[in-house]
């Protein structure tokens, strides 16, 4: 059970800008000795503001980018191993930010079937996979709809189903809610949590919305290509000043609890949800 699905060892990635003759002019280190490991069945959140390197990290897990230095091991395979490329990609499924730019099919069910078709799954099994995946994200009733008729949140759930249908070992979601409205965000986050709770799917959620990862098992905070904080949500969110210094927003209840504590109210560290805060305040009465 405790097998590492994803493990990076001193992962370094450098963007090299070249001039017209191909000589390097500028090197940007996007990832700087990143060590992140994810165990089977875990829900891991990766936080960071725009440009912190978190999306670059995500692209390494799916062999879209290759490390400049260090290694990335996905499901026991090195991502630089060309022979294993498609195995890596089918074991680490990716969901991207823009819902419009990752749906390929013109009918919901056909889009979900796209991945299995590429993997050469027999027709009959594609149908059963499509059905179970759409059911897992609660989109089964929309299977015959055109994606353009769906809301942003629904489109992202279709994208998640599309990845699920490939039967991956883990799902990596790269800011899946950044372009959604609050209700769309909520429905996508609910679907992601459902996958982890019910289907025991390993989930890596990359986001800059803190409140989406309060239920995660572990959180990594990235800044300037480095992992600067890691731990359980409680541990991470109890250090409000550090998060603020990292240009990250702290969940509302956590912020209020922290401010009350500064005023001398004896509240415990790491309050994450409204219910928790209300409960703790009642104890102080």
């Amino acid at each position: 059970m405790s097998m590492d699905i994803v493990k990076t060892d001193n992962l370094v990635f450098e963007y090299i800008r070249r001039d017209d003759e191909g000589n390097p002019v500028d090197v940007t280190t996007a990832l700087d000795h990143v060590n992140i490991d994810v165990k089977q069945g875990e829900f891991v959140g990766i936080l960071g503001h725009n440009g912190s390197g978190k999306s670059t990290f995500a692209k390494h897990l799916n062999a879209i980018l290759y490390p400049t230095d260090g290694t990335v091991i996905v499901n026991g395979m090195n991502t630089t191993d060309d022979d294993k490329l498609w195995d890596v990609r089918s074991s680490a499924g990716m969901v991207f930010q823009n819902p419009d730019n990752q749906i390929i099919g013109q009918v919901v069910e056909e889009d979900v079937g796209f991945g299995p078709e590429n993997l050469g799954v027999p027709t009959k099994e594609i149908w059963s996979r499509v059905e179970e995946s759409l059911r897992a994200v609660g989109m089964l009733e929309y299977r015959l709809k055109s994606p353009s008729r769906l809301s942003g949140g629904q489109k992202q759930r279709v994208s998640i189903a599309g990845v699920l249908a490939m039967h991956p070992k883990c799902i990596i979601l790269d800011e899946p809610t950044a372009m959604l409205d609050p209700s769309g965000r909520k429905e996508v986050v609910r679907a992601i949590r459902g996958l982890n709770d019910v289907e025991k799917m390993t989930v890596i959620l990359i986001t800059h919305y803190m409140d989406e990862v309060v239920h995660a098992d572990r959180i990594f905070v990235m800044d300037k290509g480095k992992v600067v904080m890691q731990g359980t949500p409680k541990e991470i969110f109890s250090d409000v000043p550090a998060l603020k210094a990292l240009r990250l927003d702290v969940p509302g209840p956590t912020r209020i609890a922290w401010e009350l504590k500064q005023k001398g109210i004896p509240l415990p560290d790491g309050i994450l949800t409204c219910e928790e805060l209300v409960r703790e305040i009642e104890k102080c009465r």
Binding site: M94, D100, N101, Q102, I104, E110, F114, G115, P116, I126
Partner: peptide
């Protein structure tokens, strides 16, 4: 930009040309 995104999404979903694909329908 869309084309780039889409190409990446298709690769991530293991699209590698028409050979070896099965059909849902």
């Amino acid at each position: 930009r869309r084309a780039g995104d889409l190409a990446m999404a298709m690769e991530a979903r293991c699209y590698r040309g028409g050979d070896g694909r099965t059909k849902m329908k």
